[in-house]
Amino acid sequence: MVSLKVNGAVHEIEVEDETPLLWVIRDEIGLTGTKFGCGIAQCGACTVHINGEAQRSCVIPVGSLQDAEITTIEGLSTSGLTHVQQAWIDHQVPQCGYCQSGMIMAISALLAENGDPTDEELAAAITNICRCGTYPRIRAAVRALASRED
C-alpha cells in the first residue's frame, strides 16, 4: 500500500511497489493528462513534478514516493491557466499536443528555478521530444515569459 499525494489529494494505492508512477497516475487515479511516450525516460511526455522538481514518471517506482508531493498537468493551477499555459496559447505552441503536458511541466519547473533562462540554459534543461517540431514557438513563449512583468 502506497500513500500518494497527487494534486493535493491523498490516494491510498494498492499496487506492486515497482509499478511506475506514470501508470498509477493514469490507470489507478485516472488522470490521463500525463502521457506515455517511450517508457525509458527518453521523451519526457510523462513529466510531472515531484516535490516541485520535474521528473519522468515512467521510470519512477511508486514505492519510492511515500509522502511525496506530486503535481500533474491537471493540478498545475488551482484556478484558471498558469502564465506558462497562457503563453502556450498566446504563441500557439501545440500542434498534436501529445507532448505538451510534459513540456509544460518541464518548462514550469525550470522557470520556477530560473525565471530568465538563456537559450543555452533552456536547451540544456528541456530535453523533451516533440515530433511536431514546436520548438521555435516554445523558445518564443519562454522568451516572452522571461520578459514578463507581474
Partner: peptide, 18 residues
C-alpha cells in the same frame, strides 16, 4: 487562434490512449 489548443495545454484533450 486554433480552437483545439486550449485542451492541449491543460491535459484535457482525450486522445485514443486516454
Amino acid at each position: 487562434q486554433r480552437i483545439d489548443i486550449p485542451g492541449k495545454v491543460d491535459g484535457s484533450t482525450n486522445y485514443g490512449i486516454d
